[in-house]
Design a protein around this nucleic acid. Structure first.
Lengths: 343, 343
DNA sequence: CTGAAAGCGCTTACAG
DNA sequence: CTGAAAGCGCTTACAG
């Protein structure tokens, strides 16, 4: 298969064997310019004989395109890391990888790590999908500096300096909060507490706004606890114990971050409260954590595969220079009611 | 930040501003050759002023390295696809992405699709991790043709034409089968059936061999059903109903493929059998499917994050031209006993 | 320690 | 439809 020199054959080798010029081989390969059928056949023959495979790096350098997109999130490792905890990011990555193929592109998975600059240093990409960025998101800043086209999943934080003009796919934060709150109220909950992260993400602020409005409307005293994402499950555990001590009459806890929900469930067990009889619990992301909890957690199906498919197509259009709208409606979230909130 | 021409600055621009040659800038960047501290400072200054970011495609073309590895599996989509079904592949990908960073490399996620050649066409990589390849695995053949270094996760099928000499990380198929069978026997199961896929993977053949030996030793008549992976959950559903009709005294089913286990559980429900009282069920991969089933499925913790970390390091050593052993012991699997097999 | 130059393997105007 | 040539932006011998 290999040529005699022992190194990979190049267009030059193919051209020589087929008796044409390099440019003609290139044209036959790319289909950009017409090539005589008979000539094309000779070239295909030569390619097969030599086992020629194009050097992608050379092609990329020449065209400036990498046929690669990347997906990333700056969500702190404490709430997203651990191989089986990466659900949110990984669901999106899996779907994006499949849909990127339709555009002849590969997907690079950028893991959540301490230093985004390090994570991106060796990633060449035509565009990026950024999941739920926070204010002053490091990934967003780096990408802007590099001039990489970006599509955001979830509403970007208000007035992000690195571009309030970024296109995004709506994850319906308002509707998500309403689905969970109305479910809790329907189930008879009256003293609903909210445990949020401290990061400045739109998902958090929107959830709090909706929660406050709903509580106000129903005359329920609001109770919001914020836990730094970096403290992860344990931070939520401590916060929940504190909550139960100071608000012993709480009968429901709304915990959007699933890692926090795990901590809250443990705290409830340790405090001797029964879920859902004494206290109902709901979370947002319907991943491993929600499903392995006992009772399993009521959560929201965000239809992330469809969201990722949408984001991928938008990004490809953006890369291709097409006009795209700034906000794209994602699929509507749906409630997945489970034992943690209903009898 | 950008230079006046509106295009990205290059080493040339940096060199001009710093008053040195291109080569010196390159040396300062790579650290390959010593550079005078004072000169280096001028270069760093110029880089900062211009906002210079190296063109990775050019670097890759020149060095022949891509700082990228890929992870892939040829497991049919019917048993692995669907965003939340990709657990096995995604757990490995998540871990590999993190560990690849230690080697300044990015991870490309190659999704399971109908045509591996299409999936790989635009992927440039220094090496690849291939998960549980089957005999005549298309990915393995393509990679061999391209001369890409490969590390396999799980034992490769016997005498693979594309290289029985591939290095691999052991997933302990024998021990896994023994853990599950001994657990079933301990729980009192005596009529154990085995439902396998038809693909030629070592995990399947090893499991069957162990199963047959154990049954023989205990005088239990073996009962093995093979279902094509392409038929997925539904195929296993049909097979299980057939099994229960023809072997009504079955009191346990060993279903290594988790998608099949979901089908088997549904068949048991439809046949009016109670799990675990009438029939005990165990599977291998401890993912979403195992945990959301009711009762939750007894499964095996394969410690895939550690397996992936090992595979990544091995691959990096292989790429670096180091000698590596052909077989690497992965972490030992451990039983996760759940309601599907114990009272 | 530094510079000048070659060349990696493609694709793309530019001619014909 | 095809060829000859330039050039993408790096890194790396080769001199000094």
């Amino acid at each position: 298969m290999d040529n005699t020199a022992g190194k990979r054959p190049t267009v030059k080798d193919v051209a020589r064997l087929a008796g044409v010029s390099q440019g003609t081989v290139s044209n036959a390969l790319s289909g950009m310019r017409g090539v005589d059928p008979e000539t094309r056949q000779r070239i295909d023959q030569a390619i097969a004989t030599l086992g020629y495979v194009p050097n992608l790096a050379a092609r990329r350098m020449r065209t400036g395109l990498t046929n690669t997109i990347a997906v990333m999130t700056s969500m702190p490792a404490a709430v997203s890391a651990g191989s089986s905890r990466l659900g949110f990011l990984m669901e999106i990555a899996a779907s994006a990888a499949i849909h990127a193929l339709d555009y002849n592109s590969a997907l690079v998975l950028v893991p959540p790590v301490a230093d985004p600059a390090v994570a991106l240093r060796h990633v060449a990409m035509d565009g990026a999908i950024v999941i739920e960025p926070q204010r002053d998101d490091a990934f967003l800043s780096l990408l802007k500096h590099r001039g990489v086209p970006v599509v955001v999943i979830g509403e970007p934080p208000a007035s992000h300096p690195s571009g309030g003009d970024l296109p995004w796919v709506d994850l319906h934060y308002t509707r998500t909060a309403e689905l969970l709150l109305s479910h809790l109220l329907e189930q008879g909950a009256r003293r609903i507490a909210l445990i949020l992260g401290t990061s400045s993400r739109a998902s958090q602020s929107t959830t709090e706004v909706i929660y406050q409005a709903w509580m106000l409307l129903r005359g329920i005293p609001p109770c919001v606890i914020r836990v730094p994402e970096t403290e992860g499950e344990e931070g939520a555990y401590q916060a929940t114990r504190y909550l139960l001590t100071n608000n012993p009459d709480v009968d429901a806890i709304f915990v959007p971050v699933d890692a926090f929900a795990t901590g809250a469930m443990r705290a409830l067990r340790d405090e001797g409260r029964t879920v859902p009889d004494d206290v109902r619990v709901v979370t947002r992301y319907d991943g491993l954590r929600a499903r392995e909890e006992r009772p399993a957690l009521t959560a929201i199906d965000l239809h992330l595969d469809q969201v990722a498919a949408l984001a991928t197509r938008l990004l490809m259009d953006l890369i291709a220079g097409k006009e795209i709208q700034q906000v794209t409606e994602g699929p509507l979230p749906s409630l997945v009611a489970r034992g943690s909130s209903q009898d």
